[in-house]
Design a protein around this nucleic acid. Structure first.
Lengths: 133, 133
DNA sequence: CCGCATCCGTCCCGATACTG
DNA sequence: CAGTATCGGGACGGATGCGG
């Protein structure tokens, strides 16, 4: 011992890298907003508070499970506020917090770039695909 | 027949929604830049062209497979250019295309927001977790 | 040096059924 | 109305070995 194999050194390097990677704010944010349903939910809530059922109908593509999990995650991160009104039947509202609203310009930047450049990406993709079958 | 069950109607609604979802430029872009290694690779290439081996060493956390797949995906989308120099041994360089460079401000916006607000997210998360064990 | 092929574990996500 | 519980398929991502 005292010496390590190349594989061990690579593994160690990877682990320490993973730690720094996980600590990087930008990566963590992308992990969050890259979640499949976050963008749509945030966009929907940008128009004001919504009840759970309203979201479920507006975002028909998401299963109940994914919608709930997405909302829970956003709530945990302080981007969305969940308000329970005890009544019969129960009423639950979701709304963006100030922190969540501060994220909207970033989402808009992403959205705008996508609108303007998606055609170029599609072209590049098509050419790439035809070039190599 | 002629009538459909509620389950069928829901399934249909979900499918048509999925199609619109997949067609939305912003979602497609997030799908791309949300990929685990895209952000780091783009950031690395922002500093100029890099050889494959340089990228592999700089991004020690990614396996060879993921690095190659990420680069291929970016190349397919026209965000990265791949240049092969026939020699012995072969030399391969990767660089951002103009389209890829136009994405940098967007990535910066994400990065800046993350830098400024990640602490708030961490606080919210900690409070949420302690509140409900 | 650069990358592909293969195998394999994990975890995301959807479908379904049940609760208060 | 607003969830929770559980199960299963399939994609994602990592390790390893071979090929040009």
């Amino acid at each position: 011992m005292g010496t390590r194999t190349a594989a061990q050194r690579r593994a160690d390097a990877r682990i320490s890298y993973q730690e720094r990677f996980a600590a990087c704010p930008a990566n963590r944010l992308l992990d969050r907003i890259g979640d499949k349903w976050v963008a749509v939910v945030v966009k929907e809530l940008a128009g004001g508070p919504r009840r759970y059922g309203e979201l479920a109908r507006a975002i028909a593509g998401a299963s109940q499970k994914m919608l709930t999990e997405t909302l829970r995650g956003l709530e945990r991160d302080g981007l969305v506020a969940r308000t329970v009104t005890p009544a019969v039947p129960v009423r639950v509202d979701y709304a963006l917090t100030p922190l969540g609203r501060s994220l909207l310009p970033v989402m808009d930047a992403v959205h705008d770039w996508a609108e303007q450049n998606i055609a170029r990406i599609d072209d590049a993709r098509e050419e790439y695909d035809t070039r190599q079958g």
